[in-house]
Design a protein around this nucleic acid. Structure first.
Length: 439
RNA sequence: GUGGUCGUAGCUCAGCUGGUAGAGCACCCGGUUGUGGUCCGGGAUGUCGCGGGUUCGAGUCCCGUCGAUCACCCCA
């Protein structure tokens, strides 16, 4: 029985997902991130420590647990990989080298209403860099480039990473004289949905004057693929130290990206999203052609998430929402895999008593890295070929008398002499290849 | 968590105002007696998402539930 929000893919889809995981892992390690896995559960108070964030946390309880027990030590499934990581850093700080770069590819859980690309159980590929006491802001410029590296090696649509900085927003509103900057940010964030008039109304309800609202909207309209947004902001005439700090950081991120990957990053001054522990840079990522589906890769800088007493570990991180990205693309049938199974070769069986010999041949092929299975039964050869064909397996192997084996490429029909000790499939046939089509 | 739409064979869908289920593709068998894909002939297929209710009778109406999806919320 299907459970809402807990998707289960078919093997071809899982092969695609694994290819994405493999790619992410390879690239993350190429950039020097260490592998890490944290437990699936955290104490509830750890999960909720920073702000009211998610009330959608799943709790873990024993069947026999006392129903009156609502202590803070209740366990909850993590809803992202950043909060558990922050906890992990504090706990193992003595054994870690800083700055510490790690990647984590794991399931997360949120009890939200599912939709296409939104699940209750989903896979995230997360990278973070934390340092002790202070964290240079050049890391904030590095992360988008790594994400682009991962995704550009996969058959997915081109992406645009929208970057903003909470200091810009908070500083701007402060300089403007707005008291509740958080509420203002939330209101302006709805610009696309409720329009300028709607935002003005919502701002008015928290005591923002019309003049202030107008400037806030002018700020939100700013979007540039380079550092030119700084001038545009300054022309609005708002003065604030925090604002200047944010502008410098944001400019650095966008300009760095422009130098390495033009068109990848935009300074997008209306975005404010992400969990509420972010304190500076925030990222949000759209797949071109899938903008309405929301961000498939988000993150940001957090200065206060991992701190205890006088120890402070500021960090910056970003997560690829693998399940969301794939769910959206699967929904459009935009991803393909060259076969439904890993098998490259099926060894045909003329008679059941040939199975031991076939197993030997299979073992020789497998020893050289060629995925091989022996036919399920000694049916007519036509049926055995069909067995392979239905699964997209490219080759059928026929044993000949006194070692004169042949292998048939069932796509072309070409059948050639082959020896299990030496034969190799074409490079593109060795393992399933994933592909994509999108407009 | 709130509200809307949808749910018929493996897939895409048809089934008029309620009379007890169909097509195409796919699949299986045979023609082709151990080398498939074309062609021809034949064949099987469904708890009509699930559970209640109304009715002489429900795929068709009502309620609930589960699932998918959309909007809100939130966000990967």
């Amino acid at each position: 029985m299907a459970l809402s929000g807990f998707p289960e893919w078919l093997p071809p889809q899982r092969m695609i997902e694994q290819a994405v995981i493999d790619r992410a892992r390879r690239v993350f390690e190429l950039y020097g991130f260490s592998p890490l896995e944290t437990r699936s559960v955290e104490p509830l108070d750890t999960l909720l420590k920073k702000g009211e964030t998610s009330k959608e946390v799943y709790l873990l309880r024993r069947l026999q647990a006392d129903s009156d027990d609502v202590s803070d030590s209740t366990l909850g499934l993590h809803f992202d990989l950043t909060v558990p990581f922050a906890r992990y850093v504090l706990e193992h700080a003595g054994k870690l080298q800083f700055p510490f770069r790690r990647y984590q590819i794991q399931k997360c859980w949120r009890g939200e209403r599912p939709q296409e690309g939104r699940y209750r159980e989903f896979l995230q590929a997360d990278i973070d860099i934390v340092d002790r006491d202070t964290l240079p802001s050049h890391y904030e410029a590095e992360l988008p480039l790594i994400i682009a590296d991962v995704l550009s090696g996969l058959p997915v649509p081109p992406i645009r990473i929208q970057v903003n900085n909470r200091k810009v927003l908070a500083g701007f509103y402060r300089g403007l004289g707005v008291e509740d900057t958080e509420a203002a940010v939330r209101a302006v964030d709805k610009l696309d949905k409720i329009g300028p008039d709607g935002v003005t109304k919502e701002l008015a309800s928290i005591g923002v004057s019309e003049k202030q609202a107008e400037l806030a909207l002018r700020l939100a309209e700013i979007s540039t693929p380079d550092g030119s947004f700084v001038d545009l902001v300054q022309k609005l005439g708002v003065k604030d130290d925090l604002l200047d700090e944010g502008l410098a950081e944001l400019s650095n991120v966008v300009e760095t990206a422009r130098a390495h990957a033009p068109g990848l990053c935009y300074a997008e001054l209306k975005i404010a999203r992400g969990l509420d522990y972010y304190t500076g840079t925030v990222y949000e990522t759209q797949m071109l052609g899938y903008e309405k589906a929301g961000s498939i890769c988000s993150g940001g800088r957090y200065d206060n998430l991992a701190s205890s007493g006088k120890d402070r570990f500021p960090g910056v991180g970003i997560s690829i929402g693998i399940s969301r990205m794939l769910g959206l693309l699967f929904g459009q049938n935009a991803l393909t895999v060259s076969r439904d199974v890993p098998t490259c070769v099926v060894i045909a069986l003329a008679a059941e008593q040939d199975r031991p010999a076939a197993n030997l041949t299979a073992a020789k092929l497998r020893a050289r890295g060629i995925a091989t299975e022996v036919a399920p039964s000694a049916a007519k050869f036509g049926k055995q070929i069909k067995y392979a064909e239905r699964r997209g397996i490219p080759f059928v192997w026929f044993a000949g008398a006194d070692g004169s084996d042949t292998v048939k490429d069932i796509r072309s029909g070409e059948q050639v002499p082959a020896a299990a000790e030496t034969w190799l499939p074409a490079e593109g046939d060795l393992v399933p290849v994933i592909g994509g089509s999108f407009g």
